[in-house]
């Protein structure tokens, strides 16, 4: 099963929830943690994985053979991203706009286009205790995160309902990299804070997960700060509030030194195990979260 952790607003505690959920469940079932925030990966700062494998991720970018090109312009016509331009004198490629779809290569009637790999980043895989860990690092200057997110997701292929739990730490926002991170999840946890910004971005994130047809629930972090408009919104929309993490300086101090909340605060370990049980129940898994955990752990 795949659980993704998203938020809309940045800095609400996605990584805190994702990392501590993984740590709370470590050892009870196979877990693969995917940090899909390839623009600013940070889960490694708390999980301290030992990286064992690193792979460069490339995007196929077109290269035009001017000796074969007759300037018909089909490539420029088909490109949805304006990354290839056909002028009378020459055809030019703007690699930083190219999404690597391959449409121009496929449609060129003269076979004048080949593809060459352009590096966009790297995927690193390793282990943190009993947790399998993967994350991506987008190359500085590269603007295209989704293909790298897909590469990170691919490291967990074959993991499904029968082979353990995949926890996806998604980027903030509601744009393409988030869609790439959470699509196909069995459940999406939306982490927010009880502030007007938190609510505004939560509403956008709820629209997104509904569009993607992913069941969702909310974790309110820094509960006690701000107002109760997030709670009111959730109840009016029928969205379950799965967990509230109190606004408390001791949690912030633990986070700031790279600590693990579930190790320092037993009440949060219980709370995160409770979060998992609620997700397992509401995502159509066994009513009894414990039974399901055991079943998964055996496989």
């Amino acid at each position: 099963m795949i659980i993704s952790i998203a938020s809309g607003k940045g800095g609400t505690g996605k990584t805190t929830v994702a990392v501590n959920l993984a740590l709370a469940l470590e050892g009870t079932m196979p877990i693969h943690f995917l940090d899909c925030d390839v623009e600013e990966p940070n889960a490694h700062l708390f999980l301290y994985p030992e990286i064992k494998h690193s792979e460069t991720v490339n995007l196929p970018v077109p290269v035009v053979d001017e000796s074969k090109c007759d300037g018909c312009g089909k490539c420029a016509e088909v490109c949805a991203f304006n990354a290839i331009l056909a002028f009378k004198s020459q055809t030019i490629v703007l690699p930083e706009l190219c999404h690597g779809c391959g449409g121009c290569t496929l449609l060129c009637p003269r076979g004048a286009i080949t593809e060459s790999p352009k590096e966009i980043g790297e995927v690193e895989t390793g282990r943190a205790g009993k947790i399998k860990f993967s994350h991506g690092r987008l190359k500085i200057g590269s603007a295209l995160a989704p293909p790298l997110v897909n590469a990170v997701r691919k490291t967990a292929h074959g993991r499904g309902p029968d082979s353990g739990l995949v926890i996806v730490d998604a980027p903030p926002g509601t744009s393409c990299p988030v869609v790439a991170s959470i699509k196909g999840s069995n459940y999406c946890v939306l982490v927010t804070e009880p502030t007007p910004f938190g609510l505004n971005d939560l509403m956008l994130a709820v629209d997104l997960v509904r569009e993607l047809d992913i069941p969702c629930g909310v974790v309110i972090n820094r509960a006690g700060l701000g107002d109760d408009t997030v709670s009111s919104y959730c109840s009016s929309e029928g969205i379950p509030i799965l967990l509230e993490i109190p606004y408390d300086r001791k949690y912030a101090e633990c986070y700031a030194r790279g600590g693990r909340l579930v190790e320092d605060f037993p009440e949060l370990r219980d709370a995160l195990c409770g979060l998992w049980r609620k997700i397992a129940e509401s995502s159509g898994a066994d009513r009894d979260g414990t039974a399901r955990r055991r079943e998964m752990a055996e496989i």
């Binding site: 420029a76 991203f81 304006n82 990354a83 331009l85 056909a86 002028f87 009378k88 703007l94 706009l97």
Partner: peptide
Amino acid sequence: SGGAGSQSAQFLA
């Protein structure tokens, strides 16, 4: 969403 400048140049060409 991107490439407005290059697309505009293509249009004029």
